[in-house]
Design a protein around this nucleic acid. Structure first.
Lengths: 112, 112
DNA sequence: CCCTCATATGTAGTAACGCTACCTATGAGA
DNA sequence: TCTCATAGGTAGCGTTACTACATATGAGGG
């Protein structure tokens, strides 16, 4: 699946990916791929700028480290990020409900 | 709710709004507002260009008429539009499933 | 008669954001 | 040596919903 239609929802997924502890960008990609059974495979050109945006917004905090000779930037949720994630989750449910209402506002909603 | 987060999904809603018969732009706005209990109130600057796009793409077909002294452009789904709508509905379900998987995937199941 | 509102359609310009394509660098394994 | 997986990054593009504005008619109130 392309992340094209993710517009406006990617941030929520990134925050969720950091909810159970810090991860670096590459690991976030793998996490999202695995947690969606391979259906969501984001390109690095999508992930890294998005993480920078979230850091700039103060929702996540990054720190450099070196593991196995490779430098990593690990991100953790800030307090603000935790609140934002909660709001995003609620926002998603609201959004999904609205789309489903509009999409399925049909006299035959369920198979007889 | 703003349609900002609709990016990539608005077309599906517009096609769905025309599924049970032709409507003109203004009526589409009202339909979407009512079918979502007022939660989705789209500005005309969003609707009209979007309808033009869909017509250009051959998914809907428009025709002018005059009702009560006011000109209207009514749109109906083309065959291509009907197929597109089916695909969009399937696409939505897939998309929603992916987002929910990523949003709710927890390595540590919440049941305490 | 005038003014405002609801109806009805439209455009111009802007901003957001995920994309493609590309670049750099290290460690492991063939 | 060569390629792949790992790890980070940027530049520029295309799409798309937005704000703000413009036009026009009919109905209703003052």
């Amino acid at each position: 699946m392309r992340a094209e239609e993710l517009k406006g929802h990617l941030d929520a997924l990134l925050l969720a990916a950091l909810e159970d502890g810090p991860r670096h960008g590459y690991a976030v990609i793998e996490y999202l791929r695995e947690s969606t059974s391979g259906r969501l495979d984001l390109p690095t050109g999508t992930i890294y700028p998005a993480l920078h945006r979230l850091e700039e917004a103060g929702l996540i905090a990054g720190s450099w480290s070196v593991v196995g000779g490779r430098r990593r930037r690990s991100y953790r949720l800030t307090e603000s990020g935790v609140r934002e994630l909660a709001g995003r989750r609620a926002g998603w449910r609201e959004f999904a409900a609205v789309v489903e209402a509009a999409l399925e506002a049909k006299p035959w909603p369920s198979p007889a």
